[in-house]
Design a protein around this nucleic acid. Structure first.
Lengths: 116, 116
DNA sequence: TGTCTAATTAACCGATGCGTAAAATATCCA
DNA sequence: TGGATATTTTACGCATCGGTTAATTAGACA
């Protein structure tokens, strides 16, 4: 019970079907039937994938007569990348340089008259 | 069986203990005992978290006498953010502007003499 | 009202995840 | 060799996940 937001987001993204659904939704809203069409899994299975995505905040849903339309909500993806940004200096060359630069100016200001 | 790489990465990140372990490793290599110290879970549990992280490529391990040292490997995080970058235009204002710009120049080059 | 379509919920099943305690392994060192 | 320390493997329990089929709900419409 009571799972933190980031865990909900990452575990929602851990399933390839759900990632494919998000990819489809990046091209526009779609109903459950439309979303289910490319997969050979049952409609209830898709319906529950959508519930997982909704709980993670990755989609929002609206009703139009008997159709329920899903819409991509990218904010959780922003949150997830923001979390990963802590680690960017470990892979991004420009961040590695920035990191070195920041260390240098930090060092210079802390030890203005350092010898050697 | 045979889970794709991105799913391995995201499901590894879905656990808060594992994310905390990565955070710790961003400050430097550490042994299993050192990594386990902040958590009130058993050593075997930590050991298996490390195996999950290793399978996802998020850490590498080396042996030094009876100690096994873990080291952060950020490449999978780069992969994950790269995947999310497809969706960046949905949350990043500067990407929204870039997107609009690209649409415009695309439109201009395809319909050079368009009226109105 | 009854019926059609869209979607969800319920009940179930097998696999996996995360924890435990206990046993096994690996390496150092006396 | 035998003991001490570090770590992993095994065996187990329980909860969750991802799928199924069958039943139910929601809304349109004749």
């Amino acid at each position: 019970m009571s799972t933190d937001r980031l865990s909900l987001i990452f575990s929602a993204l851990a399933d390839p079907t759900r990632r494919a659904i998000l990819a489809r939704l990046s091209e526009g809203e779609a109903t459950v039937n439309e979303l289910a069409e490319p997969f050979d899994i049952s409609l209830p299975a898709v319906s529950r994938h959508l519930k997982v995505l909704e709980n993670a905040g990755l989609i929002s849903r609206s009703r139009n007569a008997q159709w329920r339309s899903s819409k991509l909500e990218a904010e959780p993806l922003r949150e997830a990348t923001e979390w990963m940004d802590r680690y960017r200096r470990f892979w991004d060359a420009s961040f590695v340089r920035l990191d070195a630069h920041l260390r240098k100016i930090q060092h210079d200001s802390q030890d203005p008259g350092v010898k050697q």
